[in-house]
Structure formats: structure tokens, C-alpha cells
Design a protein around this nucleic acid. Structure first.
Lengths: 154, 154
DNA sequence: GCAGGCATGAAGGAATCTTTCGTTAGAGAT
DNA sequence: ATCTCTAACGAAAGATTCCTTCATGCCTGC
């Protein structure tokens, strides 16, 4: 396992991040190595965990998930058990894209995708406030997605 | 352009979202159509905007971006010009993964990836508070990423 | 100086992609 | 009901790509 990434590895990561459908031959050409070497390096990047997978990006609005909502959550108690049961339950909600334990006025921040406000209202009432240990939630409706899930720069 | 997606299209979208490296032959087999039809449908899904692209997922910690921060931003004035200039400027920051205009106590929510807290502190002082029209920011350091960038369910 | 280990590029069989072609199924009009 | 037209389908085949094997070269350490 390579202790460090050289210039070619970094270039490969950046290119594959921008276009995961890049063929091995094209990638090899763009980074300046032979297809065989490129293939071996790509496989190594996967095996060593630098690349965790490849995903097709589905347009949310095209599949009825055009509404984005950020939700801040405060729990009743700040015990490890309380955190654990909340995290276990929230991970099962299909609409939750992000769930992060944060330091500050909230315990957790959620990023949620739903069809519309009515859809969210239903989910909020049925699922979110029903999550274990939730004291209060604060909802921030997203009115405009300026940048969403940008490519990681490194 | 297909007004609606049938069962095969939906299955293709879900499979490609989970594994963007799926070969056309495998995908065709899993959804139960011929490779030729599968190829045509996949191309149509791209052409019609259902699939916006394919991305390799780079492990943030492996490339020195292991620290995640959520930042709430409040602007000085709530004028269209103020919003526009802020959005234009924030889109140029490489570390910003998400930037959403929200309704609530904040004007914008940012999701930012950096190397560590020191790195964030520098960026906060040099770039964030220097963005046009920023009155105040509230930083929420992420202590644990329970769910990050989950696959969209539909 | 020499052996060992590792990465590389060339080569080729196997698999895949992507187009073409003929057929079929369904909708709409006569 | 029948005809026509359109759209989508599967089979087939050439072109491309993948992925492995092999021999060479380079660097390191003894």
C-alpha cells in the first residue's frame, strides 16, 4: 500500500472524481502512463481505500426529490446512549443525506431531501420528532441551492 | 425525451447510483434487457438529464481533507445584489462543498472540508469573513460524521 | 558491485462497447 | 376492424477496450 500518492496518483484521483466514466485508455493517456500501469494504479487506489466507489449522480428534481431541507436537532440528554440510539435510528431514514454530530447550539445537523414542503411536513411529524431523544428541531428550508455536493478539491 | 421513467429506468438509475462502474453488460443483465437496449437507455438517461454525471468518490481523510465544518452565515443586508455578490464569491472557494440559501435564522449554510482546525481557522479569517456582505458567521465543527453524502433514495 | 524487489511498457487473448439492421408491439386515424 | 406510422426492441458484428502475462529497467540495500 503506497504510503504516499505521487503526482500521477493525484492526477488520476482528480480526473476520476470529475468523470468516473473515463475509460482506462483515456485516463492513461491523460496522465501519461501506459494503459497497463494505469489499470494497476487505479485498482491500487481502490484497494487502498483512496477511492471508495463510483457513483452516478441522479438529478434530484428529475426523480421527485427537488426540495432540500437543513434541520438542526437538539437532544434531551447528552449521554453516550442517547447519542447512539439517535444515530442508529437516523441512519435508517432514507431521506437523510447527511447527519453530523456538531459542536455548538445543536447536537446534530441533518441534510434532508424530499419531494416538497408537504412531504417534509409529513416526515417531520412522523419520523424526525419521533427519533429517540429529540428535544427540539429547527428547520431551515433551502430556497436556493447555490452549491450542492461540489467536487472535493485537494 | 421520456415524459416518465418506467420500472427499468428506475432500476438502472438505482443500480448506477450505487455502482457507477457497472458494465453495460452487467447492467443489462440485472435489469433484464439486451445490452443494446440498455446502452440506448443509459445514454438517454444522460441526454435527458436524469444522470448528471459519474463521480469517483475520493476518501477525504486520505487526501488531507478529513475535517468537516458547517457554517451559518448572516449577511449585512438582504438585497438581491448582496445575495448575488456573496454567492458569486463563495462559489469560488474550493473548500466549500455546499452553499444553500435558507429560510430561518441564517441566510446561508455552508458545508466546508478542510485539513484540520488550524486550517479552518486560517480559511475562516482569510476567506469566509472576507466574503462580501458577511455580518457574522457561526461555526459548527463536525465531531462525528454519522452519515455523509448518502445515496439518494427515490 | 551485486542481488532483490518493484514498477513499468509491450503484447495479445478475452471481453466489452456501440452501431446497424430487421422485427415487433402499440397508438391513432380512416 | 384494419391499416399505417412510430418507437422500442433484440440479434449480430466490427471496433474498441479491458486485463493479464512477460520481459526489461531502475532503485535500494547489503
Amino acid at each position: 500500500m503506497p504510503a504516499r500518492l505521487d503526482r500521477i496518483d493525484l492526477k488520476m484521483l482528480r480526473l476520476l472524481q470529475k468523470n468516473g466514466r473515463l475509460s482506462n485508455a483515456e485516463l492513461a493517456d491523460q496522465v501519461g502512463v501506459s494503459p497497463a500501469t494505469c489499470h494497476r494504479r487505479t485498482q491500487a487506489l481502490f484497494d487502498d481505500g483512496y477511492l471508495s466507489g463510483v457513483r452516478a449522480m441522479v438529478a434530484p428534481r428529475k426523480v421527485g426529490k427537488g426540495t432540500l431541507v437543513m434541520v438542526g436537532v437538539v437532544l434531551d440528554r447528552s449521554t453516550p446512549e442517547s447519542f447512539a440510539s439517535f444515530e442508529q435510528a437516523v441512519a435508517k431514514l432514507k431521506c437523510v443525506l447527511d447527519c453530523h454530530l456538531v459542536a455548538g447550539d445543536f447536537d446534530y445537523f441533518l441534510k434532508i431531501r424530499v419531494g416538497d414542503m408537504e412531504d417534509f411536513n409529513r416526515i417531520h411529524g412522523e419520523a424526525l420528532i419521533a427519533l429517540p431523544g429529540v428535544r427540539q428541531t429547527r428547520t431551515f428550508f433551502v430556497m436556493k441551492e447555490v452549491v450542492d455536493n461540489a467536487v472535493l478539491e485537494f
